[in-house]
């Protein structure tokens, strides 16, 4: 049986507490992994390792935290995502809420999409979807 959203949230919270050394009550759904919880680049890899272990899933590189959209001229111009870039990001991160970001798609703000809630929804989709 698939775990409930609460169970997923609890495990995600534990993974973030262990990876980032933050207090449990800091890990609220809207908390941003970087700006609010202080994650640095290597922490994203740590988080991926912990999620894989906690949920017994495989997270391919760039699946949860896409990292190669920003390096393409097709997708980024003048530090903003192009329409194609935005479409790509939507396709790659169906689990993220892009509505606000899309109004002013500054590449510097992409990291703000990575919230606790986004990770929960990613895991939820991963567990519900076709086997990884």
């Amino acid at each position: 049986m698939a775990p409930s959203r609460d169970e997923i949230t609890e495990k995600v919270r534990q993974a973030l507490v262990d990876a980032l050394g933050v207090d449990e009550d800091e890990v609220i759904p809207t908390a941003r992994i970087g700006a609010d919880l202080g994650a640095e680049s290597i922490d994203y890899l740590d988080i991926v390792f912990r999620l894989e272990k906690a949920f017994n899933i495989k997270i391919p590189r760039g699946d949860l935290f896409p990292d190669n959209i920003l390096t393409s001229e097709e997708f980024v111009q003048n530090k903003k995502l192009t329409d194609r870039g935005l479409a790509e990001l939507k396709a790659r991160m169906p689990f993220a809420d892009l509505s606000k970001f899309a109004q002013n798609p500054n590449v510097d703000d992409i990291a703000d999409l990575f919230t606790v809630d986004m990770i929960v929804r990613y895991v939820e989709a991963k567990l519900a979807g076709p086997a990884a």
Binding site: L45, D46, F49, R50, E52, K53, R61
Partner: peptide, 11 residues
């Protein structure tokens, strides 16, 4: 090794 050694690294 936690899990396995991956292309990006390992824990």
């Amino acid at each position: 090794v936690v899990g396995e050694v991956r292309p990006e690294g390992a824990s």
